[in-house]
Amino acid sequence: MKQSLLPALVITACLAGKLSAQPPAVNYPAPAAVVPGASTDLTLFGANLAAPTALWTNLPSAKIELAPGIEGNGTKADQVVYRCTLAAEAPVGVYAFRLATGKGVSNTRLLMVDDLASVADNGNNKSLATAQPLTFPTAVDGAAEAESYDFYKLTVPSGQRISVEVVARRLGSALDPVVRLLDAAGRELAYSDDEPGIGADCRFVYQAPTAGDYYLELRDIRYQGSPNHRYRLRIGNFPLVNTPFPLAGQKGTSPKLTAAGPSSDEVSPLSIAVPFDVASGRLPIARP
């Protein structure tokens, strides 16, 4: 009898060892962006995040450290906070990160570098009457709930140009966003679902004919939702560019780039010197 129990005991011990050595898994970061020329405390939510050893990222010239002064930081399995400090010239865009612990390395997650200040979705903005007021310009980090809407309120002067962009699929979110701009009576002024050049994400530009309150309504096109149906809603007065043209430049030359997109006419052509030693064959470009 003792001999017949031995294989079962060995198998149980092996399974227990594997379960206790699960690698970290990151679900999402909050906020969804870090700011150039500043320090941002980035909270990573997920599982098996305790005792982190490093945070890898391709953010340019970033200083990354476990955020100090937070009680229990680095000891919790479901979240950890890192402080990310970027140079002022860090280009706006989408970057990647992975978390390492003594038990392995996490899945790859995406985050933005964004020069817009971040606010959080307050969770109570489910109707026009309870729309969350926003200061123009800004960016909102939120998550869509199933069979629901998120509403935001903007107060702008006459003639104000309003650029609206939802970044979701480009950050690996499950959300397929659709956004509408409404007047105070709930009439639709602008609408965007899938947009050329950015896949399932959406964006538009609108110029307010009169001063007053305007509302943004955001939801998943399929009315789905969860904590992983996350979005970054960007609002301001900025050009919306899908892609540069041409898409490539020969090393050692200075091609003139133009832009394509909903408001690319506001972006003047730019000559870029392409060095011979471009790392990974990609050259980030940011216009001041």
Rank of each mutant, 00 (worst) to 15 (best):
N107H: 12
G104H: 05
A117P: 06
Y152G: 00
E147V: 14
P137N: 05
R161N: 08
E147S: 15
G104F: 03
D115P: 10
G102T: 11
S118C: 11
A144V: 12
S118F: 07
V178C: 06
V164K: 03
N124C: 12
A117Q: 10
T135P: 02
R170I: 09
R169E: 13
E145I: 07
N124G: 14
A117S: 11
V113F: 01
L110V: 05
Q132R: 03
F151G: 01
Y149K: 10
M112H: 04
V140C: 04
K103C: 11
A143M: 11
L175G: 00
V113I: 14
V166S: 09
N107S: 10
D176N: 14
S158L: 11
Y152C: 03
E165C: 08
S127I: 07
A143P: 02
E147G: 11
E165A: 10
S127L: 11
P137S: 06
D121Q: 12
G159N: 05
S127C: 13
A129S: 15
V178T: 11
R180T: 12
L134Y: 06
L111S: 00
V119Y: 00
R169F: 08
E165K: 12
A120R: 02
L110H: 06
V140F: 00
R170E: 14
A146I: 11
A120V: 09
D115T: 08
T108P: 02
S106A: 10
Q160T: 13
T138K: 03
T101M: 07
A168Q: 00
L171W: 00
V166D: 04
A144S: 15
T138V: 13
V156F: 01
K126S: 15
D183G: 07
N107E: 06
N125M: 04
P133I: 02
F151S: 04
S163I: 04
R161E: 06
V166I: 12
G104C: 10
T101V: 08
R169K: 13
N122C: 14
D176W: 12
T108G: 04
S106K: 05
E147D: 15
T138N: 07
S106Q: 09
S173V: 04
